[in-house]
Amino acid sequence: MTSNTLKTALFMTVLTVLFIAVGGVLGGRSGVIFAFGFALLMNFFSYWFSDKIVLKMYRAKEANEADAPDLYRIVRNLATKGNLPMPKVYIVNNPAPNAFATGRNPEHGVVAVTTGIMQILNEDELEGVLAHELSHIYGRDILIGTIAATFAGAIMMLADWARFAAIFGGFSRDNDEGGSPGGIVVLIVVSILAPIAAMIVQMTISRSREYLADERGAHLSHKPRALASALAKISGTADYIPMENANAATAHMMIINPLKGKSLLSLFATHPPVEERIKRLNALAEKIG
C-alpha cells in the first residue's frame, strides 16, 4: 500500500470521526441519522449519474476508432497493458487543454479529452495524461469522492440546522434540556468550524488521489517524465486559454484545475501544486528508470 493510499484511508477515517463527533454535538442521534441519510440520497444520485451529467455539461461527443484513431489506440493499448476494461472515449470541443475521467466503476469508465489538449501534447505526453485518467477510473476515485462528499455534506447540513436553530431558538439535542447561552455559543462556534474542517479534509482526500493517479499512471505508461511534461504544458497554456465553461462542481475531476483560484487558500484547493506533482514524477522517473 502506497503512502498516498494510506493518506486517503487516514483522511477518510478523520472525516468519519468528525461527522460522528459533530453530529453528536449538533444533532444528537436522530439528527445524525437524518443528515447522513439525506446526504446519502443526494450523493447516490450523483454517483450513478455523474458520468452523464458531466459529459452533457461539457458537450462531450463519444469518439470511436474511426473518429480518432490515434487517441483510441492509446487508450486501448493502456487498457490492455493494465488488463483493464476498455473505457468509452469522449472528445470535448474546447481549446483549453484538459482531460477528465468519470464512471461509477471500471466497467462504466469514461475518459474525455479536449481538442486543446490534443493540439499541444505529443503522443508520449498524451499517453501519460490518459494513463493518469485511467488510474482514476480503476482506483475507483468516483466512489471515494462520493463517500467523502456524503460525509462532508451531512456535516454541512447539520451545521446549517444548528445555526438556524441557535438563532431562532427551539434547538435541543437528544437527552438535552439545554438552551443556555453558553450552549448556544458552543453550537454556533461548532457549526461554523465543522464545515470548514470537513471541506479541508475532503479537499485533502482529492489532492491525495491526484498524487496517487500520477504515480499509478506513470507506472502504467512507464513514462513519468512525459506526464510531467504534459502537466507543465497544460498548466502553462491554461493561463492564457481558460476553460470558459468550467464548473466549480466538476473542477476536481480535471487533470489540472480549470478555474483560476490562486487567491484561494491552498487548503481548499482540489489539486496539489503542479510544481510538486512534476517534482514527484521526475523523482519517480529516477527511481524506476
Rank of each mutant, 00 (worst) to 15 (best):
89 V>E: 04
36 F>E: 00
43 N>F: 07
178 G>F: 05
12 M>E: 08
29 R>V: 06
262 K>D: 14
12 M>C: 06
244 E>D: 15
167 I>N: 01
282 N>C: 01
32 V>S: 10
145 G>Q: 07
89 V>Q: 01
94 N>C: 02
245 N>S: 15
222 H>K: 14
245 N>T: 12
221 S>Q: 09
231 L>K: 09
272 P>I: 10
217 G>D: 00
211 Y>C: 02
270 T>I: 08
67 D>T: 02
33 I>N: 01
119 Q>L: 08
80 T>Y: 13
54 V>S: 06
110 V>R: 15
64 N>C: 01
184 I>P: 01
113 V>R: 06
262 K>M: 15
79 A>W: 02
19 F>A: 05
179 G>M: 09
190 V>K: 00
43 N>W: 11
136 H>K: 03
137 I>Y: 08
280 R>A: 09
224 P>Q: 08
253 M>G: 06
33 I>P: 03
195 P>K: 08
14 V>C: 13
85 P>K: 09
167 I>H: 00
268 F>C: 07
191 S>E: 02
105 N>Q: 06
281 L>M: 13
212 L>Y: 11
145 G>A: 11
224 P>W: 15
232 A>M: 09
285 A>M: 05
226 A>V: 12
224 P>E: 14
256 I>K: 12
141 D>H: 05
285 A>C: 02
112 A>S: 11
137 I>P: 09
129 V>S: 05
259 L>C: 04
127 E>F: 14
26 L>D: 00
174 D>N: 03
36 F>R: 04
72 Y>C: 04
282 N>V: 04
260 K>Y: 14
202 Q>G: 03
117 I>T: 09
268 F>P: 09
135 S>G: 09
214 D>N: 05
67 D>A: 05
104 R>K: 14
38 F>S: 00
77 N>L: 15
150 T>L: 02
245 N>A: 12
262 K>Q: 14
166 A>L: 00
108 H>C: 05
5 T>I: 13
272 P>K: 13
173 R>W: 00
57 M>F: 15
97 P>I: 11
2 T>W: 14
124 D>L: 08
78 L>C: 06
239 D>G: 08
147 I>L: 13
282 N>K: 09
